[in-house]
């Protein structure tokens, strides 16, 4: 359940930004979560509900952008969709791959008031 620490980190980032802007409330929060980021979504959602109570995020609308995994094969140089870290290149079967997208886990933006 490291998802609780992750939610606490998001809360810390969001509250600091809100403070910088003298905001009373956070109305919206936009997150990016990559397919290969290691975040378990049901655990994340569960932790979210518990952690945002009585915080500036309590009433915020949460928007999550899912980012699909993309990799490039270091052998045949082709790009392909990767869903698991152990997926081989579908063109040549090689496991030497460079992950280009899908590891993201970011707070993209906030709407504060």
């Amino acid at each position: 359940m490291h998802e609780l620490s992750l939610v606490m980190s998001i809360l810390q980032i969001a509250e600091r930004e809100a403070e910088k802007h003298d905001a009373k409330q956070i109305e919206e929060i936009e997150l990016e979560i990559g397919e290969l980021s290691g975040v378990d979504r049901p655990a994340f959602d569960f932790a979210w509900e518990q952690a945002i109570r009585s915080t500036k995020l309590e009433k915020a609308q949460r928007h999550i952008h899912d980012i699909s995994g993309e990799a490039r094969c270091l052998e045949c140089d082709k790009e392909f969709a990767i869903h698991q870290l152990f997926d081989p290149c579908p063109h040549c079967g090689n496991h030497f791959v460079e992950i280009r997208k899908g590891k993201e886990f970011r707070v993209k933006s906030l709407v504060v008031s």
Binding site: L6, I13, E17, E19, H21, F105, R106, S109, V111, S113
Partner: peptide, 22 residues
């Protein structure tokens, strides 16, 4: 925890890794 005041809506481009601090 800091204080806060009431304002109009502001969009804040945060663009920060959640694990940035760590």
């Amino acid at each position: 925890h800091g204080h806060s005041h009431s304002h109009t809506k502001t969009v804040v481009e945060v663009e920060k890794d959640v694990l940035h601090e760590n």
